[in-house]
């Protein structure tokens, strides 16, 4: 099932939490919502799950309008809200049974389904506890389990890895990636490496607006990336090398990264690469090139560039 959002606006008073947002998510795609706190990620997700109604705009799920056919469409969505609210005094199994019943799973299939999902999210050792007795990481798994129990075609996960330890984060990411092979997944996060690790496509939201939309590589080139190289050249005088590098045609700017080690930071001119020129220069002068690493612009920088203003 695909998701299509047209000109979505949600106003709280006069402040727009989501401001004229349009995007599309194709079936089987994992899309990451990225944005600073209060950017409108959670509000968008609440509208997508029909918890709140938009002020303006429409949501189509599988080409059906959300507001009109909510009862039917909600059955195809698995949702993990931001703070993972659960009934603390309910045992895990009872809770999952309750959710399964609400999702209209036939009662003879429920025990099998619960067993299955408990294994899938790794709750097997804890399954006889009450939810309130679980640590945060395990609660998060219960939250995932309740979102997955009816095998929904669409998964909406609001910060699925908050509060987990590094091992658990890796496991949950793996699970989401696996699920994303056949399901449409939208997840939000403000952890950049996470979205790069899981998502096929990234939507950066800031102040209720989409400021970037594309794959990680896409975003890098959109941000007008220029090549930066870290170069180490031995067997020569640092100042002499500096001047020679600066004299190259393709080089925009040279800086000392570390003077003692003869390491330089070389910025190429826009749309050009200076790797070959540097190599040829070294051969010409008899210098030894011991290091040349491209310094990729990090997603962090793009993110900051787009969201700070």
């Amino acid at each position: 099932m695909n998701i299509k959002v047209n000109n979505l606006t949600k106003k709280y008073g006069i402040q727009a939490a989501v401001d004229d947002v349009s995007f599309e998510v194709k079936t089987g795609e994992i899309v990451g919502f990225l944005g600073p706190n209060g950017a409108g990620k959670t509000t968008t997700m609440k509208i997508l799950t029909n918890f709140i109604a938009p002020t303006r705009g429409e949501v189509f799920i599988g080409d059906k309008p959300m507001v009109e056919e909510a009862e039917e469409l909600k059955r195809h969505i698995g949702y993990l809200p931001e703070n993972n609210p659960l009934y603390e005094d309910m045992p895990i199994i009872d809770y999952l049974e309750f959710v399964a019943e609400l999702q209209h799973i036939p009662s003879q299939e429920i025990p099998e389904r619960i067993k299955d999902i408990i294994r899938k999210v790794g709750l097997n050792d804890e399954k006889h506890k009450k939810i309130g007795e679980l640590s945060k990481g395990y609660k998060q798994r219960v939250g995932l389990a309740q979102a997955l129990i009816h095998d929904p075609e669409i998964l909406i996960l609001d910060e699925p890895t908050t509060g987990l330890d590094p091992n658990q984060i890796v496991e949950i990411r793996k699970l989401i990636r696996e699920l994303g092979k056949e399901k449409t997944v939208i997840l939000s996060t403000h952890i950049l490496p996470e979205v790069e690790a899981i998502a096929d496509r990234i939507l950066i939201i800031n102040k209720g607006k989409i400021v970037a939309n594309g794959t990680a590589e896409n975003l890098r080139s959109q941000a007008g990336e220029t090549e930066t190289l870290l170069v180490r050249i031995e067997d020569g005088d640092a100042n002499e090398i500096f001047t020679a590098l600066q004299g190259l045609d393709s080089v925009a700017l040279v800086d000392f990264a570390n003077r003692q080690n003869n390491r330089f930071e070389v910025k190429s001119k826009a749309q050009r690469s200076s790797k070959r020129d540097i190599f040829k220069l070294c051969v010409e002068r008899g210098w030894v090139l011991t290091e040349m690493t491209p310094n990729e612009q990090k997603l962090e920088d793009i993110f900051r560039q787009l969201t700070i203003n």
Partner: peptide, 14 residues
């Protein structure tokens, strides 16, 4: 208070 209402109302419940 717990926010569980969000989970409930995003299930197929009116």
């Amino acid at each position: 208070r717990s926010g569980a209402i969000e989970l409930l109302l995003t299930k197929p419940i009116s």
